[in-house]
Design a protein around this nucleic acid. Sequence first.
DNA 1: GGAATCAGTGAACGTTGTTTACCCTGGCAA
DNA 2: TTGCCAGGGTAAACAACGTTCACTGATTCC
Lengths: 235, 235
Amino acid sequence: MTTTTPGRRERLRAETVTEIKDSARRLLVAGGPTAVSLRAIARDVGMTAPALYRYFASLDALVLAIVTDLFEDLRHAVEDVAAAHADEEPLTRVGHMARQFRRWALAHPAEFALMFGSPVPGVTQFAEQCTPLTDAGARLGETFFEVLGEHYARHPFGGEPHDLPDPALRELFQPYLETFGDRFPLPVIYLFVAAWTRLYGLVAMEVFGHLAWAMTDIEPLFEVELAETVRRLSR
Amino acid sequence: MTTTTPGRRERLRAETVTEIKDSARRLLVAGGPTAVSLRAIARDVGMTAPALYRYFASLDALVLAIVTDLFEDLRHAVEDVAAAHADEEPLTRVGHMARQFRRWALAHPAEFALMFGSPVPGVTQFAEQCTPLTDAGARLGETFFEVLGEHYARHPFGGEPHDLPDPALRELFQPYLETFGDRFPLPVIYLFVAAWTRLYGLVAMEVFGHLAWAMTDIEPLFEVELAETVRRLSR
DNA sequence: GGAATCAGTGAACGTTGTTTACCCTGGCAA
DNA sequence: TTGCCAGGGTAAACAACGTTCACTGATTCC
């Protein structure tokens, strides 16, 4: 019988796609980036490897899709914590968001490596063609823009706040502006990127173990750096 | 005839080792980290793949050796530029060193990815056992300690300079202190790591293309951030 | 009911790292 | 000079990988 709804094929297909993705993410957290292979996924979902090509053009395409999903996951995690402190000052909210970013990274090191680590050759080349990934990355950035924009609206930085004049900023952020338009003030974008790179540097080095030669507990340093950075944002 | 010097075997062996390493690095810069494979190296040097096991225990061990070499290369590049400005103020010298770090990273993106990117599973596990890699990394750090120490000796930070009291610092940097001892003042170590993570964050994101969605030319931002960081070092 | 599309399989190709058994040559000692 | 033996190197093989191709069944559509 099998009730013939119009989108039965599509529904089955979508279910299989999520099943494949779930399996891939399971393998990713279990064995790291190298453990996610077409054949392992196929074994896991009970198919043969070539069958996966009905759903993804290649392994790289699959990984790219997963990375895009991960960016959405991370963005939601950051948005949730921002919403949970909706009544606080924008800058303290940014602090919460930064801590959440670090927490998420430490809890998902393999995923973090895929998203923010050294670019995987195939995935990067795909990413240059398709836009969903850069979109997801930009959306994560805009989550911060939103809150920083609030602060900016209340305290629009007296004088020369952002070290660079407006026309220079406009030229500097041409890639973003070209794709997403003037949704946020230039100084907000600039200050985010400056703060973002600091945050990224500390968290990435911690997750990747690049500070293990010097120290093990990074949290005190993170808190100091976060305070310093937030202080700078409030100038 | 072949003049039978005492260490002929060893000399031949050493030559082959460097030949293998050179080939690997050639493949690395040509095709990225994934292009460096045992069989490709073997083809390049005119041997079969199993023969390489006479020189390295595994591909991971070979890569580990190369990464260690790369750290030395980078350290020399930084030291050279430090020596070239030996007569200038320590803090301006640190600025030159930071710029050199960025230059080197941009000129050697594949090598940089291997050294500072997401950890390759096998290499990392090796690195935890053997120490030469962490040693090389620490030596690179100490290159900066040296110069920062000069500044510290001239201007020993009045008051509470480094946000954290000395005993806390001692506990924080226990891994470094345990291995390398009290060669440099604690505040110097702390300030270096804090500055290092900022520098790393910006350069890594640039090299890995993680800022491409927002901006293409990172240099202006780098200069601003560098100035900011150096200013903080001079507090 | 026939045709076309789709999901899935099996076999194959060319990679990869690694192990094993074997060979040969250079260096050393008797 | 002779014998030996360790070390360098090879060929074959194994298991795993991504990917392609030809093919089969089922499902959907007209």
